[in-house]
Amino acid sequence: MNKILKFSIAAALVAGTAQAQELRGWNTHVPDYPVSIALDRFVEMVEERTDGRIQMQNYHGATLGEGEFATEQLQFGALDYGVFSTAPMVNTVKELGVTSLPYVFKDPEHQYRVLEGPIGEDIAAAMGEANMVPLSWFASGSRSFYANAPLNSVEDIAGKKFRVQNSDINVAMVEALGANATPLPFGEVYTSIQSGVVDGAENNWPSYESTGHFEVAPYYIIDNHTIVPEGIIFAKTTWDKFSPEDQAIVRAAAQEAAIYQRELWAARETKSREIVEAAGVTIVEGIDTTTFAEKMGPVYEQFASDPVVADLLKRIQATE
């Protein structure tokens, strides 16, 4: 799709949003997913606390388009808000690249401390230049590999075809492990594994379970290679229309929704793992991820050589 056509679609969607006088929110997950439940809570809080001045409608299950397309629409202002992964934004906002680097975060709590502190403020400023305003960060889980054949070590990753999000960093990470990276929309992963287009993918427990991917890729190796940020993000063109008072209300609601989502997420992770274990999935854990991390040199060299990104990386590594 060329840029002119994309812009035309975006303009049409913007016009439709204005006529409806209702903000449209995107989300890729099914309605009963922790992200979706928390996003619904967010909308309820905002509408109640603004006495209905701000009306919003969530569209779950990627009904407004798959991730990459939806991210572009947010940047155009054709979508008003939603819960977005930052992975597809890396190619537009270079500062976000550091958050998708393999093994950059020690654990989810470390990620929150980074994103909710001075480093996060600098990243948010860079996102603003691309018409995006992050308000809060959700739990997104640690991502690991799964496939239709046994995965016991880094050697088993090599040679296989893995679906990745459409991010240059993710492609480079998989290729550094000796595998073939295939960017695909999230909604196409199940049939792509089933038909042999790819051998597997990489994701967290709830995504692996809720999509049924474990049915076609029953081998899961816990390497926790990335903890990719995901959160409530507004189009800046929409955000700037709010009064300062309403901005404060919306931001506070987004942060409360994030705390709620993290609680739901912890419970869902446990439940999802129990479901796939009961289904007979082979889970390999306790591996030495050093063998994985040692292969990431080319990835860091390629994506952390920019002075701005390199500085952010040093600051993240220095954050306790």
Rank of each mutant, 00 (worst) to 15 (best):
194 Q>E: 15
161 K>M: 04
93 V>H: 02
120 G>E: 09
167 S>L: 03
152 N>F: 04
117 G>E: 08
118 P>M: 09
142 S>P: 10
91 N>T: 13
215 E>H: 11
149 A>W: 01
140 S>C: 14
139 A>Q: 12
114 V>I: 15
138 F>G: 03
152 N>P: 01
138 F>N: 11
128 G>D: 06
174 V>S: 02
189 V>Q: 05
170 N>F: 11
139 A>S: 15
182 T>H: 13
114 V>Q: 05
149 A>I: 04
150 P>C: 05
116 E>P: 00
166 N>I: 01
103 Y>T: 03
164 V>M: 09
157 I>K: 05
90 V>T: 14
99 T>E: 14
118 P>K: 15
179 A>G: 10
112 Y>D: 13
111 Q>W: 02
93 V>L: 02
199 D>S: 06
145 F>T: 07
114 V>E: 03
131 N>M: 07
101 L>H: 08
135 L>I: 02
106 K>T: 14
147 A>H: 12
175 E>A: 09
185 P>W: 10
183 P>S: 05
186 F>Y: 15
108 P>L: 12
99 T>L: 14
115 L>F: 05
166 N>Q: 10
154 V>A: 15
87 A>P: 05
208 Y>T: 10
141 G>V: 07
210 S>H: 13
98 V>I: 15
174 V>P: 01
115 L>S: 01
184 L>A: 09
113 R>I: 09
120 G>V: 08
214 F>W: 14
191 T>Q: 15
173 M>Q: 13
92 T>C: 00
179 A>M: 10
175 E>H: 12
109 E>I: 12
152 N>H: 13
210 S>P: 00
164 V>W: 06
153 S>R: 11
145 F>K: 07
151 L>E: 02
158 A>G: 10
98 V>G: 04
156 D>R: 08
208 Y>R: 08
90 V>S: 05
183 P>E: 06
207 S>A: 14
207 S>G: 14
210 S>G: 01
157 I>S: 05
167 S>M: 03
137 W>C: 01
176 A>P: 08
165 Q>L: 12
173 M>S: 12
188 E>K: 09
159 G>K: 11
134 P>S: 03
101 L>W: 08
119 I>C: 08
109 E>Q: 14
215 E>I: 04
193 I>P: 02
187 G>K: 13
